[in-house]
């Protein structure tokens, strides 16, 4: 690892900081989207389990 950093020369800090910024921003975005996806999936499953939106044969909701 230190050999890799040394091979990047005098601007290693800028290069590594760039890649760290990319990793943090894109990982944060991915995490936010995945968490939102699962939260909506759970909420939808809970509502469907309660029978929300389903109608009884008589036309009235349950």
């Amino acid at each position: 690892m230190s050999a890799l950093i040394q091979s990047l020369g005098p601007h290693a800090g800028f290069i590594l900081a760039s890649y760290a910024a990319v990793a943090v921003i894109l990982a944060g975005l991915t995490l936010a989207i995945v968490r939102d996806h699962w939260a909506q999936k759970r909420a939808l499953a809970a509502l469907e389990q309660r029978g929300a939106g389903r109608r009884r044969p008589g036309g009235e909701a349950p």
Binding site: D36, H37, A52
Partner: peptide
């Protein structure tokens, strides 16, 4: 996720 959010919103209102 957005499609599911809208479905959740509709079902909650219903």
């Amino acid at each position: 996720a957005e499609i599911m959010r809208r479905r959740v919103r509709t079902l909650t209102i219903l």
